[in-house]
């Protein structure tokens, strides 16, 4: 997805460079289509792809207004209006899982941005190429480890009986007895965010490193001539240089705030912490699909999608206004 965002931003950048003839509206449009026919042809497959996989399935949303039963044909389904939504908004558990979802995705958003950017900028300052490359490779390897395995690793590391974290803290005399990290609900968000950072920092940094490579070397040379030190260069050239990339990714991620999936939570949770670990998608799975209430599940995901779209447009609008950056 990140890569897609980059190419998209690249395309918009190119287009804004091309001067458009201020011709009459209608004919001008067709003229530019003709002029850029190869570009249009190139994007066609992707438009079709998006249409098939992102728009066609929306028709399944109708399920949310039915009491859907599998196998029966569409005309045999019973329509129930807004009953599913009414039930959803009356369930206390829904607000609890919404809180968890927002809390964990906000944490993910904050740390998922700051840490990889810092990491990328610092990695960029390294001189030794061999060292730099190996650090980069090692740091993004965890990205390819599945959450099932990461879940096991986290449990083993944080165990009270032989877990390395507790052993270390005990050895350093920071604590007197092992902390039950995985049994306390209030630790869950922190544990999850930390695991996520460990897993994804290296991978997310790649995109910023790529953006940094795109910065004109002459800028650095000019700065050096003007007497700017490394720290000054970092703040005045590197960070502003990747600003566009950061903004685009930020807006896109805000759009995903409520739809964070449930894989990490599913792998890390246990019965003791469900009040803090259950997220919207997990709730949809448990109270929707698992007990055969497909309509209810659809209502939840419909809610998620609508909120996502609203968030995306709000974030985009705000950025446009205050930071003069946007993706639309």
């Amino acid at each position: 997805m990140n890569v897609k965002a980059l190419t998209e931003s690249g395309v918009t950048a190119n287009e804004s460079v091309t001067p458009r003839p201020p011709a009459k509206r209608n004919s001008g449009f067709w003229k530019s289509v003709l002029q850029q026919k190869y570009l249009y042809l190139m994007s066609l497959p992707f438009v079709i792809w998006v249409f098939i996989f992102s728009y066609v399935p929306i028709w399944g949303w109708l399920m949310a207004f039915q009491n859907y039963k599998p196998v029966r044909s569409f005309s045999e389904q019973k329509w129930v209006g807004l009953d599913n939504f009414r039930e959803l908004f009356q369930d206390e558990r829904f607000y609890l899982v919404l809180r968890n979802t927002l809390a964990m995705s906000m944490l993910g958003l904050i740390f998922g941005f700051v840490v990889p950017i810092l990491f990328a900028v610092m990695l960029n300052e390294l001189r030794g190429n061999v060292f730099k490359r190996s650090v980069q490779t090692i740091s993004y390897l965890p990205h390819f480890v599945s959450w099932v395995v990461v879940g096991g690793i986290v449990y083993k590391t944080l165990a009270i009986d032989g877990g390395i974290v507790n052993d270390l803290l005990l050895w350093m005399n920071v604590i007197d007895e092992p902390i039950q990290f995985m049994a306390k609900g209030k630790y869950f968000w922190g544990v999850l965010t930390a695991a996520d950072i460990w897993k994804e920092t290296g991978w997310n940094a790649i995109i910023y490193l790529a953006a940094i490579t795109g910065i004109d070397k002459e800028l650095y040379e000019a700065a050096k001539v003007d007497g700017a030190g490394r720290v000054k260069q970092m703040f005045n050239i590197t960070l502003p240089g990747i600003r566009t990339t950061v903004m685009v990714l930020l807006i896109m991620n805000i759009g995903h705030l409520v739809g964070i999936g449930f894989e990490k939570q599913f792998q890390l949770q246990n019965n003791m912490v469900t009040d803090y670990s259950e997220v919207l998608d997990l709730y949809a799975l448990k109270y929707g699909i698992q007990i055969g209430r497909f309509s209810y599940g659809t209502a939840i995901s419909m809610f998620t999608s609508v909120v996502s779209v609203i968030l995306l447009f709000t974030a985009n609008g705000l950025m446009k206004k205050f930071a003069k950056e946007s993706i639309m």
Partner: peptide
């Protein structure tokens, strides 16, 4: 029964049991 209230209540009570029994023991 697989539809109607039964499954939902059952699921809810299961969630409560799995959360509160450990809490009571601990």
């Amino acid at each position: 029964p697989t539809d109607g209230k039964y499954q939902v209540i059952f699921k809810k009570t299961q969630d409560i049991v799995r959360k509160r029994i450990p809490e009571a023991i601990l």
